[in-house]
Simulated assay, not measured.
Amino acid sequence: MSTADIPTRARIGVVGTGKIFPAYAEGLAWIGGLPIVRVADVVVDVARRQAETYGIPAYGTAEELYADPDVDVVVNITPPVVHAEVTRAALAAGKHVYSEKPLAATVAAARENLQQARDAGRLLGAAPDTFLGNSGQSARAAIDDGLIGTPFAATSFVRSSRVETWHPNPAFFYAPGGGPLLDWGPYHLSALVNLLGPVTEVVGATSIPTPRIPVTAPDRVVDAVDVTVPTHTTSLLRTASGALVTTVLSFDIWDTTLPHLEIYGTEGTLQLPDPNHHDLPVLIKQRGDEEWRELPPVLPATRDEGLRPFRGHGVLDLVQALEGAPHRTTGQFALHVLEVLEAMEAATFEKGVQTISETCERPAPVARG
């Protein structure tokens, strides 16, 4: 059966047609049943070109998209600083909304969005959704099945994305709404909450080792950018289950041999790949083992390996929730992750332990198949 033969489950409108848009266009097409019927961008000509490229029937302004009765779900992939504004307008127009990460640039704005969705009786979901893939779900199954005993600790490590070497104007990566915490942090924290449950306390410190970053991208439009948010962070998180998580999220560490994520249990260790990937293998080494071994995947392939990057499972998750299934990438989940990241960014030695007020349910595992 081709994707054209799959019945429509919901009609999608996308606000924002920049660099990440092709990942959604191709990912939703591969999933099937979620046709993009309209796109919008602050530069309408950009929306027109993307509509022509992907065979999307309508394009225009965001206001036109909100008013379109053919749009059931709005996918918000605008810059983080306007996530809250776009979500607010889409909810006011009666649409369900799925937002790229983070849910908003601040916890206060995210809370307002979530309350608006509740008042309107609409679903609000948010990225990242990559923990729904095989890596995240295979690790989750191993923990739930007791393969590493009781998880008591974890590590999370992010090195520089080297954005200044490939992005023509990376200023927003080093401004409020950016930095390693809001760029990479949502992937790691969402993966950790999926595996270990919500976070209750945060302690840590941050720094800005290089206040001005030279831009070396071949097509750069600026030669350097000022850094106004922490670019090196070290934190210790305590989860509701009592597990302690050590994190180093940095744009200043140029390279490392440390793994992205490891989970330590009383009977073994799990090593996870970059959580931005869906189907790479998870390694396990149980007490007494001489060698690491790969966990068997618990799901069929959750993405087309020919498409990099790939997005869309969170949109499907929201649509399935509208049909009565568990909602895993909820606005409340994203709000909790954002509050933890905001606390990590504000952490200082003097401030000491910060208590997280927003919590969430540990997402239901995806049914194995």
Score class of each variant (00 low, 15 high):
Pro230Tyr: 08
Tyr66Met: 11
Gly18Gln: 02
Leu307Cys: 13
Ile208Gly: 07
Ile356Leu: 09
Gly33Val: 11
Val227Phe: 12
Val222Asn: 05
Ala139Gln: 00
Asp5Gly: 08
Pro209Gly: 02
Lys285Asp: 00
Leu195Asp: 11
Ser161Val: 12
Ile143Ser: 07
Gly331Ala: 04
Gln50Asp: 08
Gly94Leu: 02
Gly288Arg: 01
Ala217Phe: 06
Glu339Gly: 12
Phe251Asn: 15
Phe310His: 06
Ala93Gly: 05
Ala10Pro: 08
Gly314Thr: 06
Ser207Cys: 11
Thr355Gln: 14
Pro211Ile: 05
Gly32Phe: 04
Val227Asp: 13
Gly242Cys: 00
Val215Ile: 09
Gly133Ser: 06
Ala343Trp: 01
Thr348Lys: 07
Val337Met: 10
Asp129Phe: 03
Pro80His: 00
Pro170Asn: 06
Pro128Ser: 10
Ala347Met: 09
Asp145Val: 04
Cys360Asp: 06
His336Cys: 09
Asp223Cys: 02
Ile143Pro: 06
Val44Asp: 15
Lys351Gly: 15
His96Ile: 14
Phe173Cys: 05
Leu335Cys: 07
Ile12Arg: 02
Val225Trp: 05
Cys360Met: 03
Ala89Ser: 11
Ala29Cys: 00
Asp145Thr: 11
Gly18Thr: 06
Glu26Leu: 12
Gly16Met: 11
Ala224Tyr: 09
Ala141Met: 13
Pro128His: 01
Thr130Lys: 12
Asp304Ser: 07
Asn113Leu: 03
Glu63Asp: 12
Ser207Gly: 14
Tyr66Lys: 03
Thr8Asp: 01
Gly242Pro: 09
Val319Pro: 11
Val43Asn: 07
Val43Cys: 00
Phe172Cys: 06
Gly331Pro: 04
Leu132Cys: 01
Ser2Tyr: 07
Asp68Pro: 04
Gly312Pro: 07
Ala171Leu: 10
Ala243Lys: 05
Pro214Ala: 09
Gly179Met: 03
Ile148Asn: 03
His260Thr: 05
Ile36His: 07
Trp30Lys: 11
Val158Ala: 13
Thr234Ser: 15
Ala67Gly: 04
Val366Arg: 04
Lys19Leu: 14
Ala93Lys: 02
Pro168Arg: 06
Pro35Asp: 12
Arg308His: 13
Arg308Val: 14
Pro230Thr: 13
Glu305Trp: 10
Thr228Val: 03
Ala321Asp: 01
Glu350Lys: 14
Leu316Glu: 10
Glu26Ile: 02
Val86Asp: 07
Ala89Ile: 05
Glu26Tyr: 00
Asp5Thr: 08
Thr155His: 07
Tyr174Ser: 11
Val319Met: 05
